[in-house]
């Protein structure tokens, strides 16, 4: 089956527009993964809007190894832990583009995990290239370009569905990141000089386009390539996510599950 035929087997639904706080974003990812896994909602792509800045750490990261909590506090940055692996990232309202794909496992059947990362972000790489960025997929999970790294993805396979989410820098202040996120020397050991590794090439710098224009173009690319219908979060989905914030994603027990 061709790549496009795989996508086109499903009726994709779009969720976008409404902004949520960081813990709620984590909770919505879990709820929507569940719902797609149980067949209670169609395969969905969600574009995130943030109400507040956050450091989002990976499921298996040590909180204190990764984040300078005092610095984060001082800057009013919430620290949350997501359900997918991967590394810590800084997000700020209007300064990143983040989306989640909630898909049946059959979409990536027969692929290795590593292959599925490139497959699930291929439409984005394609869109960025149309926008004039020399972008490509850098295994395992990075979208990069001739000018530097643009973003990274993470996946979880849970509850009968695949969750794949990606964050791209639109206008992140590169000097702010190392103040709150610690990057060790060992991590850079196979990546050459430190300054090169940390070179992020935000989309604003590479396109001069407003964030909304880029996001709309990504959505249009998805729609033309795979088909896409306007959708919305259901009130019961939002309620379930709020409850998960209370019992899990908003709790210190979860955020510090690996202290």
């Amino acid at each position: 089956m061709s790549e496009l035929a795989r996508w086109r087997k499903y009726r994709w639904q779009l969720i976008s527009g409404e902004a949520f706080d960081p813990a709620m974003q984590m909770a919505l990812d879990e709820v929507l993964t569940y719902r797609v896994g149980r067949g209670e909602r169609p395969p969905t792509v969600r574009f995130w809007e943030w109400t507040a800045p956050a450091v989002v750490i990976g499921r298996f990261q040590s909180l204190r190894n990764e984040v300078d909590l005092e610095e984060a506090n001082r800057h009013g940055i919430t620290v949350v832990r997501r359900i997918t692996g991967g590394g810590a990232m800084l997000t700020e309202p209007g300064r990143v583009i983040t989306y989640s794909i909630y898909a049946p496992p059959e979409l990536v059947a027969g692929m290795s995990f590593q292959e599925s990362y490139a497959f699930l972000d291929a439409w984005v790489v394609e869109a960025l290239r149309v926008l004039g960025i020399d972008a490509w997929y850098q295994p395992i999970n990075d979208i990069t370009s001739a000018n530097g790294k643009i973003g990274g993805a993470a996946q979880a396979r849970r509850h009968g569905a695949v969750l794949h989410h990606t964050t791209m820098a639109y206008d992140i202040d590169p000097e702010k990141v190392p103040r709150v996120i610690r990057i060790g020397r060992e991590k850079l050991s196979d990546k050459g000089v430190r300054s090169a590794e940390r070179r992020v090439a935000p989309l604003r710098q590479q396109t001069n386009l407003p964030r909304e224009t880029i996001q709309e173009f990504l959505i249009r690319t998805f729609a033309e390539r795979h088909g896409l219908e306007e959708g919305t979060l259901r009130p019961d989905e939002i309620d379930e996510a709020r409850e998960l914030v209370r019992t899990k994603f908003g709790t210190w027990e979860w955020t510090a599950i690996l202290p």
């Binding site: 499921r59 298996f60 990261q61 692996g85 810590a88 993470a154 979880a156």
Partner: peptide
């Protein structure tokens, strides 16, 4: 013993 990092692991309980 505590193992942490920015790796990917499924299911998470395997940690």
């Amino acid at each position: 013993v505590r193992v942490t990092g920015d790796f990917f692991l499924e299911p998470p309980e395997a940690l």
